[in-house]
């Protein structure tokens, strides 16, 4: 079944108190958002978030048992199948699903659950992972809390919240740091949770943000975040999908834990590019675009990884390309950070 018939799932995550609920509250009140089902992941206290999200009360299903991490993925499966049942019975008209995680949740297992469950994978697809980052405490979280970094790595879009409360310099510093951790995600700001819902729920197209602000991404000693490297690899010629798939699947099998993110726009010889999006071991079903977004047809891949050096990746890819007899199409690498 093509992605068109599947319900888009948006995962909203972000560290504790970073404004996930506020963001959703505002977004869900906007036009065209009535048929959104919201799954809230309860953590601790009595369904507080549930009360805040009254607007969508009927389609809100509380996930019991804390985190939507590996341990309680079943809850998510249950919640989504339940939702699916209701949709297919015609009880509800749902055009999109939002999953709000807890502040400490790792979004990767959620992506994994949706992509690998035998039933769910045919009815839902992950559209976006939105990560809210608090402008006041965001930097602190990124430096101290590994969960926060993990969330940032998985992001398709960052929403910087509370920018009105933080000094401008701090916001800039935060943006720079996010660029270092995950250069492939788009960055937007929201004050008091006000943001255009269309922006939140449109598919992420950013493969790679070329430092939009011309300021060089400078690196202070203290800002280096937990040994994260990111690298952009480009190919001038169309790629052999089979050869590339062999290399990437082997790499992910061996080093999936350390390759935090793979994102790419690949020219495999067809009319349009293929969008590749992966989080650790999990690769989304590649999406074929009808046409190229711009004139230039260059395959670009962004890797974000931990404790794997960019040179290792490039050497390995070069050796494989050579072994596969595609010497004319050698990768070019640029270390983003």
């Amino acid at each position: 079944m093509s992605a068109k018939h599947k319900l888009p799932v948006t995962i909203v995550t972000g560290f504790l108190g970073s404004g996930k609920t506020t963001l959703l509250q505002h977004a869900l009140r906007q036009q065209g958002m009535q048929d959104t089902a919201v799954l809230v992941n309860e953590f601790g206290m009595v369904g507080l978030d549930h009360h805040l999200l009254q607007m969508v009360e009927e389609s809100t299903i509380l996930l019991g048992g804390g985190c939507v991490c590996c341990s309680t993925r079943d809850d998510l499966v249950q919640a989504l199948t339940q939702l699916l049942n209701r949709v297919q019975k015609g009880e509800r008209d749902v055009s999109k699903v939002v999953i709000e995680t807890t502040g400490l949740a790792d979004p990767a297992p959620i992506v994994f659950t949706v992509l690998s469950h035998p039933v769910l994978q045919h009815h839902f697809h992950i559209q976006n992972v939105i990560v809210t980052v608090d402008a006041v405490n965001g930097l602190f979280h990124l430096r101290r809390q590994p969960e926060s970094v993990k969330q940032a790595l998985v992001a398709d879009k960052f929403i910087i919240t509370k920018t009105d409360l933080a000094p401008g310099e701090e916001v800039k510093q935060l943006l720079r740091e996010l660029q270092v951790i995950n250069p492939s995600a788009g960055r937007h700001t929201a004050v008091h949770g006000v943001i255009d819902a269309a922006l939140l729920f449109s598919p992420a197209v950013t493969i790679r943000q070329r430092a939009a602000d011309p300021a060089p991404v400078f690196q202070e000693k203290g800002t280096h975040v937990q040994d994260v490297n990111s690298v952009s690899i480009t190919f001038r010629e169309p790629l052999d999908w089979t050869a590339f798939g062999l290399w990437l699947s082997m790499l992910l099998h061996a080093k999936g834990e350390d390759i935090m993110r793979v994102k790419g726009l690949l020219d495999i010889g067809g009319a349009g590019p293929v969008i590749l999006n992966g989080v650790q071991h999990i690769i989304h079903p590649p999406n074929h675009l009808e046409a190229w977004p711009s004139e230039e047809r260059v395959s670009t891949l962004v890797f974000i990884m931990r404790s794997v050096s960019p040179e290792e990746i490039l050497t390995s890819l070069e050796a494989f390309q050579k072994a596969f007899d595609v010497k004319h199409n050698m990768p070019e690498m640029e270390i983003l950070q």
Binding site: W247, S249, M250, L251, H253, A254, K255, V308, E312, I313, T315, S316, A319, F320, K322, A323
Partner: peptide
């Protein structure tokens, strides 16, 4: 399924970043 099965038969993980493998490929 290929890589886990290969790992089983070889007895260790097949690592594409392995310098020995890369040298052999070259």
């Amino acid at each position: 399924g290929l890589w886990p099965a290969a790992e089983k038969l070889a007895g260790y993980t097949l690592n594409p970043l392995d310098t020995v493998l890369i040298a052999k490929l070259k």
